[in-house]
Design a protein around this nucleic acid. Structure first.
Lengths: 156, 156
DNA sequence: GTGCGCATGTAAGAGGTTACATGATTAA
DNA sequence: TTAATCATGTAACCTCTTACATGCGCAC
């Protein structure tokens, strides 16, 4: 794949897992090339920079396998929404409801996106379907929690 | 609270929300003091550095309220485990099972910790209980997913 | 007598994003 | 004609972690 395509893939199917900006992506590809973990094939194009198609090498695949065997690092998570909820006693009830409603809207949108992407990819990439299924499960759980929370505070 | 106490609080009840190392925490407190958002009271102690008790000021509380009203930034999430799952076709089945089993163990441990902390704090800080409840919901959902996943691949 | 808890803090570095530079093609 | 898509890349900056410095009291 090209750097550009990798970016799209990461932004789409892998957005629940990690992310990457070009400022990280391109230097990383150059480093992997230096290390011999990937090789590149330039495809000239008219009117735009040559497309650089990267492909993993035998050595790269070996290193990948080694990395995969290592225990995974702990999740790095930063949820500003939850932090605001934690500090909500400083907020009038009305603002709190708005905060939660916005979050519910965002979660609903994410849920719809995930359903749509699941339909798109269910027959193609099983690995991608796996990650999608995981994301869906957690997204549904958050949705349930948000609805319950809204019920609870509106009853008070 | 002192910087030391804040660190403990964040590591405990807020670990599912954010985190903080001293290298961030102390400079931030100094900055807030400069800005007049907090004030400090030194409590001398024998045999260790004076404890610096920070307290939010009127101005600080005002700014906090403004910040709370702004829509929350999107979650920043990095799940190395899921990334490895995504790349699992490069891994022998046995290693995949090990990877998932380790994750299940960690999730179980987290679940137990959360239950224990929920019992500890249920009668004290309702805000903290809220965050705990949220964390528990998502943790249970992940647990369910992991169990289902293990069932699925072992049946194949 | 060793290690943990208490309690402050800084310096170096890792890791990442944002904004920019370039510029043709194509759809609304 | 305006904006998005394609496609590369760099420089400046921001944010955070890791590792260090200091050192007493207390429990095992």
């Amino acid at each position: 794949m090209s750097g550009y395509d990798i970016k799209k893939r990461v932004k789409g199917a892998l957005s629940t897992v990690t992310n990457a900006s070009y400022g990280t992506l391109y230097p990383t590809l150059h480093r992997l090339l230096d290390e011999g973990a990937v090789e590149v094939q330039e495809v000239p194009q008219t009117g735009r920079p040559a497309k650089k198609l990267y492909q993993i090498t035998k050595k790269g695949r070996q290193e990948l396998r080694e990395w995969l065997k290592q225990p995974a690092a702990a999740d790095q998570i930063r949820r500003e929404f939850l932090l605001k909820l934690y500090l909500a006693k400083n907020l009038p009830m009305q603002d709190l409801l708005t905060l939660v409603a916005i979050r519910r809207g965002e979660t609903e949108a994410l849920l719809r996106t995930l359903y749509a992407e699941q339909d798109d990819t269910s027959n193609s990439d099983p690995q991608q379907a796996l990650v999608m299924d995981y994301a869906l499960s957690l997204c549904k759980a958050e949705m349930d929690w948000l609805r319950q929370f809204e019920d609870r505070i509106q009853r008070v």
